[in-house]
Design a binder for these strands. Structure first.
Lengths: 139, 139
DNA sequence: ACATCTTTGCAACAAAGTTGCAAAGTTTTT
DNA sequence: AAAAACTTTGCAACTTTGTTGCAAAGATGT
């Protein structure tokens, strides 16, 4: 089932390696966003920690995944749905973090409203993160 | 000029110590948000690193400062203008990070729009961070 | 000024992230 | 399909960031 992972890697002109296939596959199978720690845990001792850092960095640069801002000092990564331009400002969609289970979702169908900024300020990218309770955790 | 710092500390039932006065003063004098590193640098060897961590933590708990989410793994702290309820979800204002000079502003007069979430999702807090060019850095 | 309670600094540690480099793996060329 | 050229990986060593326990120093209330 690693077909789509391989296609994605080739499309982005990346060498197809075991690490990249497995990590990309993990993203494809995960509903939400992943932290470095999530991946390191999942992969066990299979891959070096450094390799995971570098892979995530490469994926971000190539526009395969994007980072999601958070207040808790743990960078979260999620697949870019419509493969955003490499390194550029991509999908302006809303992110949702569940306070209960910790899952982070990309709400692809909820778009970020345009914000009116004070004079002299120019917007480039807008990140909107809602936290609360997700559909799995509601009472 | 540390009067207002002292008043703020007392209002929040905190002992008035040198560290707290100086750090709070630094926030009062800064236009934007500060990271732990900013403060450590500014204070030099005057205070222990651990003390700064604990002071920031205390200030957040007491609602003197709040954290601003970011995608770059550096927690930013900023003064709460209308002293938000301790530990609770405070001012729903927009934050702005300048890509050029790195300054983070609280746009107190720009409010966060309500977001319509998919069924089953309940919002608790909404963080909105716009990045771009600030009024000081515009061409 | 004393007793009590809180905060600080130190030391030691744990976790997170980075860099250089040789070995292993992938891709391209012939 | 083998060799050359290039890319990625894993290791080691290191830096930075954040945490915990505890005794000494400092703040507060009487």
């Amino acid at each position: 089932m690693q077909e789509s992972a391989i296609i994605t890697l080739k499309k982005h002109e990346l060498s197809v390696t075991d690490t990249r296939k497995k990590i990309l596959q993990f993203f494809l199978e995960s509903a939400g966003a992943l932290t470095h720690a999530d991946i390191e845990q999942q992969m066990g001792a299979a891959f070096d920690r450094v390799t995971i850092y570098r892979t995530l960095q490469t994926f971000v640069e190539k526009g395969i995944i994007h980072t999601i801002p958070s207040a808790d000092n743990a960078i979260r990564y999620a697949l870019c749905k419509d493969n955003c331009a490499a390194g550029h400002h991509h999908d302006d969609h809303v992110h949702f973090m569940c306070d209960d289970c910790g899952t982070t979702y990309c709400l692809d169908h909820v778009s970020v409203p345009k914000i009116k900024l004070p004079k002299g300020f120019t917007a480039n990218q807008t990140d909107l993160v809602v936290s609360g309770v997700c559909h799995k955790c509601e009472a």
